[in-house]
Design a protein around this nucleic acid. Sequence first.
DNA 1: GGGCGCCAGTTTTTT
DNA 2: ACTGGCGCCC
Length: 762
Amino acid sequence: MQKLLHNLNPEQLAAVTLPAQSALILAGAGSGKTRVLTTRIAWLIQTGQVSPSGILAVTFTNKAAKEMQARLSAMLPINTRGMWIGTFHGLCNRLLRAHYRDAALPQTFQILDSQDQLSAIKRLLKANNIDDEKYPPRNLMYFINSAKDQGLRAHEVDAYDDFNRKFVQLYELYDQQCQREGVVDFAELLLRTYELLSRNQPLREHYQARFSHILVDEFQDTNDLQYKWLKIMAGKHSAVFAVGDDDQSIYAFRGANVGNMMAFEREFQVQNLIKLEQNYRSHGHILDSANTLIANNSKRLGKNLRTDAGHGEQLRVQEASSDLQEAQWIIEETKSLIAEGAARSEIAVLYRSNAQSRVIEHALFSAGIPYRVYGGQRFFERAEIKHAIAYLQLMDNPHNDSAFLRVVNFPTRGIGARSLEQLQDAARQYGISLYAAVPYVAGKAGSSLGAFIKLIEGTRFETQNLPLQEMVQVVLDASGLLPHYRNEKEGADRIENLEQLVSAAMLFVSEEGFGIDAPALVGPPAQAVAGAAVTTGDGVEIIDADAPLATIMSPLSAFLSHASLEAGDNQAQAGQDALQLMTVHSAKGLEFDAVFITGLEEGLFPHENSQQEQGGIEEERRLMYVAITRAKKRLYLSFSQTRMLHGQTRYNMKSRFFDELPDEALKWLSPRVQQHHWSAHTAKAAWVDAPQAGANAIAQKISSKGIGWKIGESVSHQKFGEGVIVNIEGGGGNPRAHINFGRHGMKLLDLGVAKLEKVARA
DNA sequence: GGGCGCCAGTTTTTT
DNA sequence: ACTGGCGCCC
C-alpha cells in the first residue's frame, strides 16, 4: 500500500483514495492523470473495496486501454486481461456478443468501419433510386452518425423540412438494411447496448450491481450517447470516477460535449471535485504561456497549472517569409538541437492540418533527416487487407452485402455490373441478401455467381477444423488474392501485407487466449458459457458477458471485430530514431523535449472555418493549449508571410494567439522582416500566381510612382487592425487593394481614401 | 473489365 | 497542387 501511494502529491493522493462516491477529477495536461486513474483502481482492489470483476474502466482509444492495463499489471499481482478495461466500443462489442439474442443481433454480427459504412450508404441510395447529388452519401452518413451519437433513432429525430424528412427516412432504411445484413456501425454498437440495457431490466440490474466502480478517462471527449451509456451502466449505486480536462476538449466536431462535465457534476451529485494542477512536464515559460492563452476562454471549469521546474527557456518565435523558408528554418533548428544531443524522437513538429506536412517532409527528406509522419493509412484499412477480411466476413456471415460486393469480382471472375444488377434486383424483390439471392439468378450470370458461392462454401468446409492463422492462409490462396498480386507489377508490398495478416491472426489467437489450435469457426463450448451464467434475484438466468473473448465468440468472429475496432497502428513504423511529424490533434496525450508549432497564422491556426462555428475560436484556442503543453523543455512557434495552399499563394497574418501569450515568455528570433525589398521567392510567387499579371504590373507602377504599397506588405488600419495586402487592382486614379485583415476578413480598400499605415518592423 | 481523363473537394479523428 | 472518385470508352 505504501508503495502504491508513495510519491503521489496531495491532490493525487486525495483523488486516488476518495470514498466510493462519484467524483470529477479535473486533470490538467501533464498532471499524472493516467497514474491517478490506474492507482485508483489498484487501491480499490488492494484495500478490498472491490474485486477486479467489479471494476469497469472506459477509454476512447485502444492505446489508452492497453496502457492502463499494462500499468495495472505492473501494480497488482493479478491477470488484468480478464478485467473490464476497454474502449466504449470494445466493451459494447463484448456485451452484444454475449447478449446477442436480447439485442436482436445474429451471433456473428459484424462491425462496419467508416469506409464500410459509407459504401453501405451509397448502396442504400442506389437501391432506392435516390439522387446522390441532392442527398450526398457523406452528408447522410454524418446525419445518421450524429443522430445515433445523440442516442436518437430515426423516428426520434425532429425533421423540420422536406430535406430533413428525407434524411430521416433514409436513416430508417439504413438501419433496416444493416439489420438485414447482420452488421452494425460504430455508433450502433453503443446505441444498441444502451437500448439493450434500458429495455432489459434484469440485465441492466445485473450489470449495475456488478460494476460498483466505473472509471472514465478523457471524460471531456464523451458524446451525449456515451454519457447516457455511463448513466445507465452506473445506475443509482455505482461510483463513477470521471477524469478529464475541459481545456483539452478538441473533439466537438465529432460530437464530444464538454457540457457533460457540468451535467455529470450535477446529475451524479459530485461532492468531490479535485483539480490536479501540478504539472510534471513543462518548464515555467511554457506553462505560463499555456495558462495565459487559455485564460482567454470563457466557460471554463477553471484551472491553473503550476510547476516546480523553474522558468526554463523562452519560447522561440520565428517569422518566415514563406512556407519553404519556414521548413528550412525547422531543418536548421533541428540540426542544432541534434548537435546539442537531442534525440530525434524527442522532437515533434506540429501543424494544424495535414496539408502542411508536405513542404516540411520535403525539406527533411532533402536534408536527410529521418522523420516519421503520424496519421497515415492503417493496417486493416489497406485495400488488400480489406479484401482478405471481406472473404473471411463472408465465411462468418454471408449476408454482409458490403463484403460480398467488395470481393465478388475481385480478383476478376467475369461477374460484371450487368450480373450484379440482376442479382440486386432479385435480392430486393425477395428482401434477402445478395448471397441468398444467387439461386434466383438464371443463365450465365447465375452460373458465375454460383461459382463464387461455391468458392466461399468450399473454403469454409475446407477450413472448418483449422485454426485461424491457417484458415487465413488458405483463404488468401483460394480467393485468388495472392495469385492476383503475384501477377501484378507493384504487388510485392501487398503480398507482404497479406502475409502479415497471417501473423496478425496468429498473434491474435495467442494473445486473446483462444489457443493456437482452436478451430477458427467454432464458438465457445456450451459449458463454458453456462459456467458464466448468473442468476438474478428475479430468478432470471443471465449469461454474463465475462472476459475473455474466448468464452463468448469464435476466434474468427473475434478476429473480425478486432480488425474493425482496432485498425492498427496509426503512426509510421517505430524503430529508427526519427523526428515526429503530426497534427496537433494527434499530438494530444504525447510529450516531447522540443516541440515546433508551425503555421501559426490567421486562417490556418485558428482555422478559418472555425470563425463561423459556435465556440469555434475557443476550441481552436484549446487546440493551441494542447499544442503548447506537449513541450517539456523547448518550444518553437512559427508563422509565414506566404504559404502555398490549394495551389494558390496565400498571404496570412500572424495568429491572434501570439497576442494572447505573455511577452516575457517570448523570444523573437527573426526581427520582423522589412518587406520593402521583395525576396526572390515572394516576388516570383506574386507574379506567377496573380490572377491577372496586369494587376501586378499596375501594383508595380503604383509603387514606382511612390505610393509604395506592394503585394505581401503588412499594413495597419484604424478599424481593422493589422492586415496583409493580397492584391492591388485598378490603376489610373483609383488603385484599390485587397487586404487580408485576418479575423476581420478580407477588405477591398481604396488606397487613395483609406488611412493605411505601414506596419513598423522591429 | 480496365484504363484514362475530368471534376470536385480540400480542418481536425477514434471507434 | 493533389487526390480520389466516377464515368466513359475501348
